[in-house]
Design a protein around this nucleic acid. Structure first.
Lengths: 256, 256
DNA sequence: GAGATTAGCGTACGGCGTACGAAAAAGCTA
DNA sequence: TAGCTTTTTCGTACGCCGTACGCTAATCTC
């Protein structure tokens, strides 16, 4: 399933995202709301952490906050909007310490580590399709923070955007494979060794030496060097080094 | 949603993936199967292309091949395995022309363009969580092909793996944002201009000039330069340049 | 107090993956 | 040829999901 967001009407979603800035517009008549939107979002976040994003259903979220399932719809238009709020909240809580780096390279490296760590700590985030999610305070603040890391380096505006997108996208990309392999390992309840052992019987029948020579050699080397658990971490370190080298070359050209 | 795969038992999935190499093990007694696994996979692929991955349900796939929904379970253990087969099939069909590049840099550039183009052409692929998906013939052949592009450059086995993963991961990462923004644009049925116009009312109230100065300036520059449709394409070109610069620097060090 | 408004929520609908078991088809054995 | 065994087919059903609809009850305004 694609846990997707962004399908909601922006006219409905934006005021929800910026609810703290705009103030809650609740009617004065009728019964008071028994809980708050923040409590709903918080419950959904907790549920995602505890049981994974696919366990976040309207019924379960409602149960967590102590109201009926359909009562949720007096707080939110639907599930898509709830996911929007969850994502913006989580993005807004990512650390913002990369400004401490003393060189541009160091700042971008810290940014990449921050993003990587945040996605590893909140794996459900990458399982939500966020396509043109309405701009909320969390993602806006993070974007502003990221741009601040490359301000004044001689890059034009478009390339400032491109650099931070490149670094953040790289971190998300590696985090995604790390998370996916970790989740499957957990779900299957089988260690890497046993998993490969069970595969070996079939694979050896099929991979006669001549058909996949490089894969056989390289796959073995990778497998020997790393438990696949930490293979993603090496991917991250290796890729980050290359990426920062490439960005440094650009910065050297444009240095003001 | 996370349309997830890899939950299946590899003892069941691997023989399905390598069915052409191993031969189909169908019992001789009883009724003949009315269709083939290949027909099932093909129908699922067509369905994913026509209506998107979230429309791929067991009931609809069965209807497309002309059997009852529950009959599918005599071909496959479940939906997870069907997704495994779809992904491996689609990956195996990606073009493999990057070997024509005359320099390592050129080959990796072609690889990135190939991957990017393939994901753009088969957007449903990136919506499937493939975590430690059992190795099938399609992904095995592609991995072998990718490794061939960086063979003999002086990289050790582990870094050969890391380089191709970096380039392919980058392409997938940019393709993902391109696809997601395109899908949302289509789903909302609203042009970029109109979408921003509807957001502007709320955003202007909230983004007083002082809170997000960089975002405001850069966001405007990006918006003016690109319709957001082609913004991903610039991200790709920009990122690819930096990435290849960084890899080139490494290759210059290790050149044999 | 009367009326208007709004939150809460029970019920229900159409979708999903798939467990279960009956029916039917085909080959093997006697 | 008759009966048995194996295997495919598939109708029904269960428990999930998101959410449309409409009633009840709480609370403010007049």
């Amino acid at each position: 399933m694609a846990i997707s967001t962004g399908a909601g009407d922006p006219d409905r979603t934006l005021p929800l995202l910026w609810r703290r800035e705009l103030g809650v517009q609740t009617g004065s008549r009728g019964p008071k709301q028994r809980v708050s939107i923040d409590a709903v979002v918080e419950a959904a976040l907790a549920l995602a952490v505890d049981e994974g994003i696919e366990a976040v259903s309207m019924r379960k979220v409602a149960e967590r906050v102590g109201i009926g399932a359909m009562s949720l719809y007096t707080y939110l238009p639907g599930k898509a909007e709830l996911l929007d709020l969850m994502v913006d909240e989580a993005v807004g809580r990512a650390p913002r310490e990369a400004g401490r780096g003393s060189t541009p390279r160091e700042r971008l490296e810290l940014l990449a580590r921050e993003e990587y760590g945040h996605f590893r700590a909140h794996p459900w985030l990458l399982a939500v399709d966020v396509s043109r999610a309405p701009l909320g305070p969390g993602s806006s603040e993070r974007y502003e923070y990221q741009l601040g890391l490359v301000e004044g380096l001689g890059l034009d505006d478009v390339d400032q955007d491109a650099v931070v997108a490149l670094v953040a996208g790289f971190a998300a990309s590696v985090a995604r494979v790390a998370i996916e392999s970790e989740r499957t390992r957990r779900a299957s309840g089988v260690s890497d060794e046993e998993w490969w052992g069970r595969n070996a019987v079939v694979l050896e029948r099929v991979m006669d030496g001549s058909r996949f020579p490089l894969s056989g050699r390289v796959g073995q080397a990778v497998g020997e060097r790393f438990a696949s658990a930490i293979s993603a971490d090496y991917q991250f370190e290796f890729g980050l080094g290359r990426l920062l080298d490439g960005i440094d070359a650009l910065l050297a050209e444009v240095r003001p």
